[in-house]
Design a protein around this nucleic acid. Structure first.
Lengths: 157, 157
DNA sequence: CAATACTTGACTAAAATAGTTGGTTTAATA
DNA sequence: TATTAAACCAACTATTTTAGTCAAGTATTG
């Protein structure tokens, strides 16, 4: 699972869509303007999101995109995965052609971590993000953040 | 938080270090050979890991690197963060200069997800990965994986 | 002193990211 | 029916990042 600004763009656009797709299809130019992402870049991203069956399109004037499923049934992980086709597996691919035991061990450990990150991101739905935001108030977020370590404060994701 | 192969290299190298740094410092050339990462690239990564106080170096013959703290006290998140200095914050930076309410909302939602990923990765220590691996047997891993959705099967991290 | 190994900085090739340009189809509506 | 708004498509480009190379140091041990 790669996690870069490309994925951020995709998730941001999908959230924009999730928030307002009840009132008919949403055009990419709208999202482009609201989220400040270039239109043609959005087109590229949505071509992939469509292939992954995460969005449905309506062509012609008044057309646009809508979520293919309910926001509750679309995981953040699936969105990020959809726009990152080139996945670089580890060299040994978990296969038996590792030299010695050590190299394979660290590869297995990394795989283990990867699985956890996947499970984590697949466990969060778009609706999940929207809902918590609606419930949460500013003061509680700040106290949450104060609890994290100094490392966390430096982290901008 | 960026999650790319750069971070994978760093975590892999740190795991290699964690596994064997009990018996004195480990040289980068050893790690390079075992993990199949170019020596000079490792040097760049370890320069950053050192600045982040995650490793300590011993110079001269017989020298090398050792973890600066116990494996239990080094989180995967801190390793990944250390090697990714260029963090691209969202344009609005969570500040008040967003236009309208909508753009800010999706930014806040993304920030929320970022925080969760951070907390998640900061909650996993190197020791954590090593320990679970020692306990876990192959059959249980496979049944774990079978439980995940079809999306998960496609994901290579 | 000599060998080892860390340290630093400048450089480069390849890949990915982000954006551009210029179309074509599709479908609603005036 | 002509116009128009939108998805769709493909090729291209600039920028950034990744990954790796090279070379010249510095510190330390034996």
């Amino acid at each position: 699972m790669k996690l870069t600004s490309k994925g951020r763009y995709a998730v941001t656009a999908m959230l924009d869509l999730a928030i307002r797709c009840d009132s008919g299809p949403v055009s990419l130019s709208e999202i482009s303007e609201r989220q400040d992402i270039s239109l043609s870049y959005l087109e590229q991203l949505f071509a992939r999101l469509r292939k992954a069956n995460l969005v449905r399109s309506v062509r012609g004037p008044g057309g646009g995109y809508a979520l293919a499923r309910k926001a509750k049934e679309i995981s953040v992980g699936s969105v990020i995965h959809a726009v990152n086709e080139t996945v670089d597996a580890t060299r040994c691919k978990g296969q038996a052609d590792c030299q010695g035991g050590e190299r394979c061990l660290t590869h297995t450990l990394w795989q283990d971590l990867s699985d956890r990150v996947n499970d984590f991101l697949n466990g969060i739905s778009l609706q999940d993000l929207i809902s918590t935001e609606q419930v949460k108030d500013v003061s509680s977020r700040q106290s949450d953040r104060a609890k994290t370590t100094d490392i966390n404060i430096l982290l901008q994701v």
